[in-house]
Design a binder for these strands. Structure first.
Lengths: 157, 157
DNA sequence: CTTGGTGCAAACATTTTGCAGCACA
DNA sequence: TGTGCTGCAAAATGTTTGCACCAAG
């Protein structure tokens, strides 16, 4: 039972502080719509994710919560990640076999990563041209693109 | 210790039967170059993969080998998949959390999938425009693209 | 013959689940 | 005050590894 996806943000907010309140509100609304509860654990998890401001792993999230003195169990973290994913607040990113990564999605279903194969550095990218290309490909097949995930593996030139 | 990647095929061979011999030869050469052995198990695994002619999972491969009366252990299958990946004969594809998928790569480092979110149907795609776009993005950053993986999630229009 | 390969079973890492008690709406 | 939520520990999943024996080159 996936939660209602949030709509893509209409304004271009980039300051972490500016988005904490809206995202909490979005989450709250999505939960309420399903008869689910907005608990302190869920709030703390989302707050911590917002502070990351980039890719993270479940383990890091757990660690970070512990450091802040907010004990949240592994089970709750995983359960909340799923909730956040199903309402499109975060996105599940898979680029290596051993670990799931996540990042804030702000309602976007699209994700492009530049992955440096030597340093392991990962950078998130916006690629509007790809959306056009992708939509065209889909339209030609009578399909509709809901989103995409692109990983580009790079080395230094 | 990755094997030497194979060079992209120069000719456009598309018939499964036409490629069995070359891929075996490529694998053999890659193994020999590392002082590794070309065993019956490895040969059977590659043969079976070629017959799949599409995406597959480790479990399917194991199953298919068993049906053919070729008992190969799980451990050997996983070990061989790694070898085949490191010489670019196959490609490791991740598009869901629960299972790794693989497919023949023919030396390519690029991979585009159209994934139907409702039916689960998956289709492989060639997208030359994306290569141009990707290379341009990388060049602008002083980087060099080694390959990419793109997954487009679609529904019926 | 020597080095690497195989199968088996146990180990592993990550994620999921069952359950009993707790707490939000 | 009832349904959903939490933490814990156990289970489940997919993949890897140690080891003793086997086989390719």
């Amino acid at each position: 039972m996936p939660l209602e996806p949030i709509k893509p943000a209409s304004s271009e907010q980039t300051e972490p502080m500016d988005i904490i309140e809206p995202l909490c509100a979005v989450f709250r609304r999505a939960l309420k719509a399903e008869g689910l509860k907005y608990t302190p654990e869920r709030a703390r998890i989302l707050d911590t994710i917002i502070e990351f401001d980039g890719l993270f792993e479940a383990e890091q999230l757990l660690e970070s919560l512990k450091e802040k003195g907010h004990q949240v169990s592994k089970a709750t973290v995983y359960r909340t990640l799923k909730l956040l994913e199903s309402c499109s607040i975060i996105q599940h990113v898979l680029f290596d076999r051993e670990q799931s990564h996540y990042q804030l999605a702000f309602g976007k279903q699209d994700n492009t990563l530049l992955i440096h194969v030597e340093t392991g550095e990962v950078q998130t990218l916006e690629l509007p041209e790809l959306i056009a290309l992708r939509d065209q490909i889909c339209k030609a097949r009578g399909l509709k693109a809901q989103g995409h995930k692109l990983q580009i593996f790079v080395t230094d030139a």
